[in-house]
């Protein structure tokens, strides 16, 4: 089953990528499309970051202090260095130490 889902999502990706130069050139993107799409990466990635740091089971919130601290240090690191590798290494080392 995973193969079917994987191939279908791969196909959707491929269709998006060739959508505008595949011959269907008459598709017109509404101007607001660009505005909405520009927020997709921020929104999706933030949701994943939050859900891996804090969980809520309907009644109470639970979190791991070490991971929260490491995440805050990673945010500072990303602001200062803008480097994926540095942020990743500093964040991992923090969570190992705590």
């Amino acid at each position: 089953m995973i193969w079917l889902v994987m191939v279908l999502t791969g196909l959707i990706n491929f269709i998006f990528r060739i959508s505008m130069f595949s011959g269907f050139r008459n598709i017109h993107l509404p101007p607001s499309f660009h505005r909405y799409v520009s927020y997709v990466p921020i929104s999706v990635l933030s949701a994943i970051i939050a859900s891996s740091l804090v969980t809520h089971n309907g009644h109470e919130i639970s979190y791991d202090v070490g991971k929260l601290v490491a995440a805050f240090i990673a945010v500072a690191c990303a602001l200062l260095t803008k480097s994926v590798s540095v942020t990743l290494i500093v964040g991992l080392i923090t969570v190992w130490i705590i």
């Binding site: 990466p41 921020i42 990635l45 933030s46 994943i48 970051i49 891996s52 740091l53 991971k67 490491a70 995440a71 990673a74 945010v75 690191c77 990303a78 602001l79 803008k82 480097s83 994926v84 942020t87 990743l88 964040g91 991992l92 969570v95 190992w96």
Partner: peptide, 16 residues
């Protein structure tokens, strides 16, 4: 704790 690398990578992408 290598699974924690995922939120860290995403933080590195989103924050800037």
């Amino acid at each position: 704790e290598l699974a924690f690398a995922i939120p860290l990578t995403f933080i590195a992408i989103v924050v800037p």
